[in-house]
Simulated scan of single mutants.
Amino acid sequence: MSHTAHIPSHRKPRQSASKTALRAGVAGGVLSTIAVAGAAGPAQAEPVTRTVEMPTITAGLSTSVAASAQATQAVALDLETQAHEDAEAATAAKTAKKAKAEAVRKAEAKKKAEAAAKAKAEAAERASRTAERTTLSASTESSTTSAPVSSNATGSAASVIAFAQSHVGDAYVSGGTGPNSWDCSGLVQAAFRTVGVELPRVSQSQSTAGTQVSLDNLQPGDILYWGGAGSAYHVGIYVGDGQFVGAQNSSTGVVQKSLDYDPPSGAVRVL
Protein backbone atom coordinates (compact mmCIF):
# COMPACT_ATOMS: atom_id res chain seq x y z
CA MET A 1 0.00 0.00 0.00
CA SER A 2 1.16 3.44 -0.80
CA HIS A 3 2.09 5.65 2.09
CA THR A 4 -0.18 8.31 0.75
CA ALA A 5 -3.25 6.16 0.47
CA HIS A 6 -4.70 7.23 3.82
CA ILE A 7 -4.44 10.90 3.07
CA PRO A 8 -7.80 12.18 2.04
CA SER A 9 -7.94 14.28 -1.07
CA HIS A 10 -8.68 17.97 -0.62
CA ARG A 11 -9.51 18.58 -4.34
CA LYS A 12 -13.04 19.24 -5.27
CA PRO A 13 -14.76 16.55 -7.25
CA ARG A 14 -13.89 17.03 -11.00
CA GLN A 15 -16.82 17.89 -13.07
CA SER A 16 -17.02 15.93 -16.32
CA ALA A 17 -16.39 18.07 -19.44
CA SER A 18 -19.04 17.98 -22.09
CA LYS A 19 -18.39 15.30 -24.58
CA THR A 20 -19.70 15.40 -28.12
CA ALA A 21 -19.50 12.59 -30.62
CA LEU A 22 -20.55 13.08 -34.25
CA ARG A 23 -21.14 10.16 -36.41
CA ALA A 24 -22.23 10.95 -39.99
CA GLY A 25 -23.12 8.50 -42.73
CA VAL A 26 -23.33 9.40 -46.44
CA ALA A 27 -24.98 6.30 -47.87
CA GLY A 28 -28.68 5.46 -47.71
CA GLY A 29 -29.75 8.12 -45.16
CA VAL A 30 -27.65 6.86 -42.22
CA LEU A 31 -28.57 8.51 -38.96
CA SER A 32 -25.88 10.62 -37.34
CA THR A 33 -25.75 10.56 -33.58
CA ILE A 34 -24.44 13.29 -31.38
CA ALA A 35 -23.80 12.27 -27.81
CA VAL A 36 -23.62 15.03 -25.31
CA ALA A 37 -22.52 14.38 -21.76
CA GLY A 38 -23.64 17.11 -19.42
CA ALA A 39 -21.92 18.07 -16.23
CA ALA A 40 -25.00 19.25 -14.35
CA GLY A 41 -24.52 16.91 -11.38
CA PRO A 42 -21.90 14.96 -9.55
CA ALA A 43 -19.28 12.99 -11.41
CA GLN A 44 -21.32 9.87 -10.95
CA ALA A 45 -24.36 11.26 -12.88
CA GLU A 46 -25.48 9.43 -16.02
CA PRO A 47 -24.68 11.30 -19.27
CA VAL A 48 -27.54 12.89 -21.22
CA THR A 49 -27.82 11.54 -24.76
CA ARG A 50 -29.63 13.32 -27.74
CA THR A 51 -30.09 11.86 -31.18
CA VAL A 52 -30.27 14.22 -34.20
CA GLU A 53 -31.04 13.06 -37.77
CA MET A 54 -28.70 14.68 -40.32
CA PRO A 55 -29.97 15.49 -43.83
CA THR A 56 -29.08 13.12 -46.66
CA ILE A 57 -26.93 14.77 -49.38
CA THR A 58 -26.16 11.84 -51.61
CA ALA A 59 -29.44 11.87 -53.56
CA GLY A 60 -29.03 15.40 -54.97
CA LEU A 61 -25.35 14.86 -55.63
CA SER A 62 -25.89 11.67 -57.60
CA THR A 63 -28.62 13.32 -59.69
CA SER A 64 -26.34 16.25 -60.59
CA VAL A 65 -23.48 13.91 -61.44
CA ALA A 66 -25.78 11.79 -63.61
CA ALA A 67 -27.16 14.85 -65.43
CA SER A 68 -23.67 16.17 -66.05
CA ALA A 69 -22.51 12.82 -67.39
CA GLN A 70 -25.54 12.62 -69.68
CA ALA A 71 -24.93 16.15 -71.02
CA THR A 72 -21.27 15.35 -71.63
CA GLN A 73 -22.23 12.19 -73.49
CA ALA A 74 -24.72 14.13 -75.64
CA VAL A 75 -22.11 16.75 -76.54
CA ALA A 76 -19.62 14.03 -77.41
CA LEU A 77 -22.22 12.30 -79.61
CA ASP A 78 -23.03 15.59 -81.39
CA LEU A 79 -19.35 16.22 -82.02
CA GLU A 80 -18.87 12.72 -83.36
CA THR A 81 -21.90 13.08 -85.66
CA GLN A 82 -20.70 16.47 -86.93
CA ALA A 83 -17.23 15.09 -87.59
CA HIS A 84 -18.74 12.18 -89.53
CA GLU A 85 -20.92 14.53 -91.60
CA ASP A 86 -17.96 16.83 -92.31
CA ALA A 87 -15.89 13.86 -93.49
CA GLU A 88 -18.70 12.68 -95.78
CA ALA A 89 -19.13 16.20 -97.20
CA ALA A 90 -15.41 16.48 -97.88
CA THR A 91 -15.41 13.09 -99.61
CA ALA A 92 -18.44 14.04 -101.71
CA ALA A 93 -16.87 17.37 -102.72
CA LYS A 94 -13.65 15.62 -103.71
CA THR A 95 -15.58 13.05 -105.77
CA ALA A 96 -17.63 15.77 -107.49
CA LYS A 97 -14.49 17.75 -108.33
CA LYS A 98 -12.84 14.68 -109.79
CA ALA A 99 -15.97 13.84 -111.82
CA LYS A 100 -16.17 17.39 -113.17
CA ALA A 101 -12.53 17.35 -114.20
CA GLU A 102 -13.06 14.01 -115.96
CA ALA A 103 -16.14 15.35 -117.77
CA VAL A 104 -14.21 18.41 -118.94
CA ARG A 105 -11.38 16.21 -120.17
CA LYS A 106 -13.76 13.94 -122.09
CA ALA A 107 -15.57 16.94 -123.61
CA GLU A 108 -12.30 18.43 -124.79
CA ALA A 109 -11.18 15.09 -126.20
CA LYS A 110 -14.51 14.71 -128.01
CA LYS A 111 -14.26 18.22 -129.41
CA LYS A 112 -10.76 17.57 -130.69
CA ALA A 113 -11.84 14.26 -132.23
CA GLU A 114 -14.80 15.91 -133.97
CA ALA A 115 -12.57 18.70 -135.29
CA ALA A 116 -10.07 16.15 -136.59
CA ALA A 117 -12.84 14.10 -138.22
CA LYS A 118 -14.29 17.22 -139.83
CA ALA A 119 -10.91 18.27 -141.17
CA LYS A 120 -10.33 14.77 -142.52
CA ALA A 121 -13.74 14.71 -144.19
CA GLU A 122 -13.18 18.13 -145.76
CA ALA A 123 -9.78 17.04 -147.06
CA ALA A 124 -11.31 13.89 -148.51
CA GLU A 125 -14.10 15.91 -150.13
CA ARG A 126 -11.61 18.33 -151.68
CA ALA A 127 -9.56 15.44 -152.99
CA SER A 128 -12.70 13.83 -154.41
CA ARG A 129 -13.75 17.05 -156.13
CA THR A 130 -10.30 17.54 -157.59
CA ALA A 131 -10.27 13.99 -158.95
CA GLU A 132 -13.81 14.35 -160.28
CA ARG A 133 -12.99 17.66 -161.91
CA THR A 134 -9.90 16.18 -163.53
CA THR A 135 -11.98 13.31 -164.89
CA LEU A 136 -14.68 15.65 -166.14
CA SER A 137 -12.15 17.91 -167.82
CA ALA A 138 -10.56 14.98 -169.59
CA SER A 139 -13.97 13.72 -170.67
CA THR A 140 -14.97 17.17 -171.89
CA GLU A 141 -11.83 17.59 -173.94
CA SER A 142 -12.33 14.21 -175.61
CA SER A 143 -16.05 14.64 -176.34
CA THR A 144 -17.17 16.59 -179.35
CA THR A 145 -20.66 17.03 -177.90
CA SER A 146 -19.25 18.56 -174.73
CA ALA A 147 -17.03 21.13 -176.44
CA PRO A 148 -18.37 24.67 -176.36
CA VAL A 149 -19.77 25.70 -179.70
CA SER A 150 -20.28 29.12 -181.11
CA SER A 151 -23.82 30.32 -181.60
CA ASN A 152 -25.51 33.22 -183.25
CA ALA A 153 -26.46 34.63 -179.85
CA THR A 154 -25.81 38.32 -179.30
CA GLY A 155 -26.14 40.82 -176.51
CA SER A 156 -27.31 39.58 -173.14
CA ALA A 157 -27.94 36.04 -174.38
CA ALA A 158 -24.34 35.76 -175.55
CA SER A 159 -23.09 36.89 -172.11
CA VAL A 160 -25.31 34.36 -170.30
CA ILE A 161 -24.09 31.54 -172.58
CA ALA A 162 -20.44 32.56 -172.25
CA PHE A 163 -20.69 32.46 -168.45
CA ALA A 164 -22.32 29.03 -168.45
CA GLN A 165 -19.79 27.57 -170.88
CA SER A 166 -16.87 28.94 -168.84
CA HIS A 167 -17.92 26.70 -165.94
CA VAL A 168 -18.17 23.45 -167.88
CA GLY A 169 -16.15 20.93 -165.89
CA ASP A 170 -16.99 22.44 -162.49
CA ALA A 171 -18.28 20.10 -159.79
CA TYR A 172 -21.95 19.56 -159.00
CA VAL A 173 -22.82 20.16 -155.33
CA SER A 174 -26.37 20.27 -154.04
CA GLY A 175 -27.07 23.85 -152.97
CA GLY A 176 -23.90 25.06 -154.71
CA THR A 177 -23.85 28.64 -155.98
CA GLY A 178 -20.20 28.89 -157.12
CA PRO A 179 -17.68 29.97 -157.75
CA ASN A 180 -16.38 26.49 -158.63
CA SER A 181 -19.25 24.19 -157.65
CA TRP A 182 -22.92 24.46 -158.54
CA ASP A 183 -26.30 22.89 -158.56
CA CYS A 184 -28.51 23.33 -161.66
CA SER A 185 -30.52 26.37 -160.54
CA GLY A 186 -27.47 27.96 -158.88
CA LEU A 187 -25.60 28.00 -162.21
CA VAL A 188 -28.60 29.38 -164.15
CA GLN A 189 -29.20 32.11 -161.56
CA ALA A 190 -25.51 33.16 -161.60
CA ALA A 191 -25.41 33.23 -165.43
CA PHE A 192 -28.40 35.56 -165.71
CA ARG A 193 -27.14 37.72 -162.86
CA THR A 194 -24.19 38.73 -165.10
CA VAL A 195 -26.65 40.66 -167.30
CA GLY A 196 -28.64 42.14 -164.43
CA VAL A 197 -31.49 39.64 -164.40
CA GLU A 198 -32.27 38.31 -160.90
CA LEU A 199 -33.95 34.92 -161.15
CA PRO A 200 -35.56 32.91 -158.34
CA ARG A 201 -33.21 30.48 -156.60
CA VAL A 202 -34.91 27.12 -157.21
CA SER A 203 -35.81 25.16 -160.35
CA GLN A 204 -39.56 25.18 -159.72
CA SER A 205 -39.69 28.99 -159.71
CA GLN A 206 -37.24 29.41 -162.59
CA SER A 207 -39.44 27.21 -164.80
CA THR A 208 -42.14 29.91 -164.67
CA ALA A 209 -39.89 33.00 -164.53
CA GLY A 210 -40.44 33.98 -168.17
CA THR A 211 -42.66 33.33 -171.17
CA GLN A 212 -43.30 29.69 -172.01
CA VAL A 213 -41.92 28.77 -175.48
CA SER A 214 -42.10 25.65 -177.64
CA LEU A 215 -39.10 23.34 -177.81
CA ASP A 216 -39.37 23.71 -181.59
CA ASN A 217 -38.86 27.46 -181.32
CA LEU A 218 -35.86 27.69 -178.98
CA GLN A 219 -33.43 30.61 -179.01
CA PRO A 220 -29.95 30.79 -177.42
CA GLY A 221 -30.33 31.96 -173.79
CA ASP A 222 -33.70 30.26 -173.18
CA ILE A 223 -34.06 28.41 -169.88
CA LEU A 224 -34.79 24.70 -170.30
CA TYR A 225 -36.57 22.75 -167.57
CA TRP A 226 -37.26 19.10 -166.82
CA GLY A 227 -40.56 18.22 -165.17
CA GLY A 228 -43.68 20.36 -165.11
CA ALA A 229 -43.77 24.16 -165.26
CA GLY A 230 -43.82 25.23 -161.62
CA SER A 231 -42.79 21.78 -160.44
CA ALA A 232 -39.54 21.33 -162.40
CA TYR A 233 -36.77 19.29 -160.80
CA HIS A 234 -33.95 20.43 -163.13
CA VAL A 235 -32.99 23.42 -165.31
CA GLY A 236 -30.32 24.32 -167.88
CA ILE A 237 -29.47 26.94 -170.50
CA TYR A 238 -29.96 26.46 -174.25
CA VAL A 239 -26.78 27.58 -176.04
CA GLY A 240 -27.84 26.97 -179.64
CA ASP A 241 -27.14 24.27 -182.24
CA GLY A 242 -29.28 21.78 -180.34
CA GLN A 243 -27.10 21.87 -177.19
CA PHE A 244 -27.47 23.02 -173.60
CA VAL A 245 -25.23 23.69 -170.58
CA GLY A 246 -26.29 22.49 -167.15
CA ALA A 247 -25.03 21.28 -163.78
CA GLN A 248 -26.36 17.77 -164.14
CA ASN A 249 -25.37 15.69 -161.11
CA SER A 250 -22.44 14.74 -158.87
CA SER A 251 -21.21 12.18 -161.42
CA THR A 252 -21.05 14.50 -164.42
CA GLY A 253 -20.77 18.00 -162.93
CA VAL A 254 -21.36 20.95 -165.27
CA VAL A 255 -21.55 19.70 -168.86
CA GLN A 256 -22.50 20.83 -172.33
CA LYS A 257 -24.61 18.19 -174.05
CA SER A 258 -26.96 17.62 -176.96
CA LEU A 259 -30.68 17.89 -176.24
CA ASP A 260 -30.87 14.22 -177.26
CA TYR A 261 -28.68 13.38 -174.26
CA ASP A 262 -31.49 14.40 -171.89
CA PRO A 263 -34.55 15.85 -173.68
CA PRO A 264 -36.12 18.71 -171.65
CA SER A 265 -39.84 19.04 -170.86
CA GLY A 266 -40.22 22.73 -171.71
CA ALA A 267 -38.59 26.15 -171.90
CA VAL A 268 -39.11 29.75 -170.82
CA ARG A 269 -37.71 32.91 -172.40
CA VAL A 270 -36.46 35.66 -170.07
CA LEU A 271 -34.34 37.80 -172.43
Rank of each mutant, 00 (worst) to 15 (best):
V160K: 02
V195Y: 00
E80G: 14
V104Q: 12
A92L: 15
V235H: 03
G196Y: 07
P55R: 09
P13K: 09
A24S: 09
A17Y: 02
E114A: 14
E85T: 06
A247R: 04
A92Q: 14
R133K: 15
P55T: 08
G246M: 11
A191Q: 04
A138D: 11
N217P: 01
R193S: 15
S159K: 15
A138V: 02
P179Q: 11
G221R: 07
D262Q: 08
L218G: 06
L259D: 09
F192K: 07
K118E: 13
R50G: 04
R193Q: 14
G230T: 06
S265F: 00
G60A: 15
C184Q: 01
G175I: 05
K112N: 10
M1G: 15
N217E: 15
A37H: 10
T91S: 14
G246K: 05
S181P: 00
K110T: 11
A83P: 01
T211K: 08
A66S: 14
K98G: 02
A164L: 04
D241C: 01
Q73E: 12
V239N: 07
S137K: 12
D86T: 09
L215D: 09
A27H: 13
R193L: 12
A74G: 07
H6P: 00
L61Q: 08
T135A: 15
Q82Y: 10
V245H: 08
V36Q: 11
V65K: 09
H234R: 09
K98R: 13
A5Y: 09
Y261G: 00
N152R: 05
R126F: 04
G28I: 01
K19V: 13
Y261Q: 05
K120S: 14
L215T: 10
A89M: 07
K100R: 11
I223S: 04
A67W: 03
T145N: 14
T140W: 07
G266A: 10
D216G: 15
P8K: 12
P264F: 02
A121N: 01
T81G: 00
K19I: 12
S137R: 10
A127G: 12
M1V: 14
G196H: 05
R269L: 01
G25Q: 02
A101V: 01
E114F: 03
Q243D: 00
E88T: 11
Y238P: 05
T20V: 14
P179Y: 06
K112H: 11
A147G: 06
D183I: 08
Q219D: 04
H3N: 14
A17C: 02
P148L: 05
K98Y: 03
S64H: 03
T208E: 11
W226N: 04
G228I: 03
M54D: 05
A113M: 02
Q248N: 11
A69M: 11
T211Q: 10
S181T: 10
A229V: 02
D183C: 09
Q15E: 10
T4A: 11
Q212M: 07
